[in-house]
Amino acid sequence: RELEKFANEFKVRRIKLGYTQTNVGEALAAVHGSEFSQTTICRFENLQLSFKNACKLKAILSKWLEEAE
C-alpha cells in the first residue's frame, strides 16, 4: 500500500519537475552509480516489478527526488 502510494506520488512529482522516465534513469547514475532503463522506471510507476525490487528502487528514487527538488 505504501509502495503504491509512493509510486503514484513519484510519477506526479517527476512530471512536475519536467523529467521523463529516461531522464530519471540516467540521473540515477549520479545517486546510485548505475543507470536504470526507462522500462524499469515505467514498471516501477505501474507497480510491475517484484515487491523486493520495487522496495530497493523506492529507496533509490526517494533519494533522487530529494536531490531533484
Score class of each variant (00 low, 15 high):
57 L>F: 12
38 Q>T: 15
34 S>Y: 08
63 K>W: 05
51 F>H: 14
22 T>Q: 15
49 L>S: 06
52 K>W: 08
67 E>C: 09
16 K>R: 13
7 A>S: 08
52 K>H: 14
8 N>R: 15
63 K>E: 14
45 E>V: 02
23 N>A: 15
47 L>F: 06
60 I>V: 13
3 L>D: 02
20 T>G: 05
28 L>T: 10
59 A>C: 12
29 A>N: 05
27 A>W: 14
5 K>T: 10
65 L>E: 03
51 F>P: 11
29 A>T: 14
48 Q>E: 13
11 K>V: 04
15 I>P: 00
47 L>R: 12
39 T>P: 08
5 K>P: 00
29 A>W: 01
52 K>L: 08
58 K>S: 05
55 C>K: 11
20 T>A: 02
47 L>V: 01
58 K>Y: 06
7 A>C: 10
64 W>E: 06
1 R>P: 11
2 E>M: 03
16 K>I: 05
20 T>K: 01
68 A>Q: 12
67 E>Q: 12
21 Q>M: 08
50 S>N: 14
3 L>K: 04
25 G>Y: 14
64 W>R: 03
16 K>G: 06
41 I>G: 00
8 N>M: 13
2 E>P: 07
58 K>R: 11
45 E>M: 01
12 V>N: 15
51 F>T: 12
60 I>P: 10
45 E>Y: 00
40 T>K: 03
19 Y>A: 08
6 F>L: 02
57 L>I: 14
37 S>E: 06
3 L>A: 12
15 I>H: 08
35 E>I: 09
34 S>A: 12
69 E>H: 02
18 G>R: 02
22 T>I: 06
20 T>Q: 01
48 Q>S: 08
30 A>S: 11
50 S>R: 08
40 T>V: 09
64 W>F: 08
8 N>T: 13
14 R>C: 03
49 L>N: 02
4 E>S: 11
52 K>N: 13
18 G>W: 02
44 F>N: 00
12 V>W: 06
3 L>F: 07
19 Y>C: 06
13 R>V: 04
52 K>Y: 14
39 T>Y: 07
28 L>G: 04
35 E>C: 11
51 F>L: 11
30 A>N: 10
65 L>R: 03
57 L>D: 04
36 F>I: 15
24 V>Y: 03
45 E>Q: 03
44 F>E: 04
5 K>C: 05
46 N>S: 12
41 I>Y: 00
15 I>Y: 03
3 L>V: 07
5 K>E: 13
68 A>T: 13
29 A>F: 06
68 A>D: 03
56 K>D: 08
62 S>M: 12
48 Q>R: 09
14 R>I: 10
10 F>Q: 07
44 F>C: 01
55 C>M: 15
63 K>T: 14
61 L>Q: 03
28 L>Y: 04
30 A>P: 07
40 T>Y: 00
35 E>H: 10
60 I>L: 11
36 F>A: 07
68 A>N: 10
19 Y>D: 04
17 L>C: 05
56 K>H: 09
1 R>L: 09
41 I>L: 06
63 K>F: 02
61 L>F: 06
57 L>P: 01
65 L>G: 03
37 S>L: 04
18 G>V: 01
31 V>A: 13
62 S>P: 01
33 G>E: 02
55 C>E: 12
12 V>G: 11
1 R>N: 08
17 L>S: 03
44 F>V: 00
15 I>W: 01
62 S>D: 13
65 L>I: 14
64 W>C: 11
65 L>V: 08
48 Q>L: 08
7 A>K: 00
40 T>H: 08
29 A>S: 12
22 T>W: 15
23 N>C: 11
36 F>N: 03
23 N>T: 11
23 N>R: 13
50 S>A: 09
55 C>I: 14
52 K>V: 14
65 L>D: 02
45 E>R: 00
28 L>S: 04
11 K>M: 06
1 R>M: 04
33 G>H: 06
11 K>I: 07
43 R>Q: 14
64 W>L: 02
50 S>C: 07
31 V>W: 08
23 N>F: 15
28 L>C: 01
33 G>F: 01
34 S>V: 12
36 F>H: 03
55 C>R: 09
23 N>L: 07
7 A>P: 01
45 E>W: 03
37 S>N: 14
36 F>T: 06
28 L>N: 02
66 E>R: 10
19 Y>M: 15
30 A>R: 14
36 F>S: 00
23 N>G: 14
2 E>D: 12
54 A>T: 01
21 Q>N: 03
61 L>P: 04
33 G>W: 05
51 F>M: 11
42 C>E: 15
26 E>L: 04
22 T>D: 11
51 F>C: 06
50 S>T: 10
24 V>R: 01
22 T>A: 15
53 N>H: 15
44 F>K: 00
11 K>A: 06
46 N>G: 09
43 R>N: 12
14 R>L: 04
47 L>W: 03
34 S>K: 14
1 R>F: 12
41 I>R: 05
22 T>Y: 08
29 A>Q: 12
12 V>D: 11
50 S>P: 15
12 V>E: 15
4 E>F: 09
13 R>I: 00
14 R>M: 05
36 F>V: 14
27 A>I: 11
23 N>Y: 13
19 Y>Q: 11
55 C>A: 10
60 I>H: 07
68 A>I: 15
63 K>G: 11
49 L>F: 11
53 N>A: 14
21 Q>G: 00
23 N>Q: 15
54 A>L: 13
2 E>G: 08
56 K>W: 06
4 E>L: 05
56 K>N: 12
14 R>E: 00
